[in-house]
Amino acid sequence: MPELGKYAVEVLSAYAVSLVILAGLVLLTLRRGRAARAALARAEAETKGTVDAV
């Protein structure tokens, strides 16, 4: 751990907030991506035979 002096709170909070926001963005993106894959798979299964292969 580096010596942050009197600005420890500022530096640490800046890193914490930024990393939390970035992690949130990545997690939301991945979750939405998985949901989309599932939705597509479901749609393909449901419409199998009724629609030409796309």
Binding site: R32, G33, L40, V51, V54
Partner: peptide
């Protein structure tokens, strides 16, 4: 790239349905 893929899949799913 990842999110674009997500959007393409969602679009295709709704188009299929």
């Amino acid at each position: 790239l990842y999110r674009t893929g997500t959007e393409i899949r969602l679009r295709r799913a709704s188009a299929l349905l």
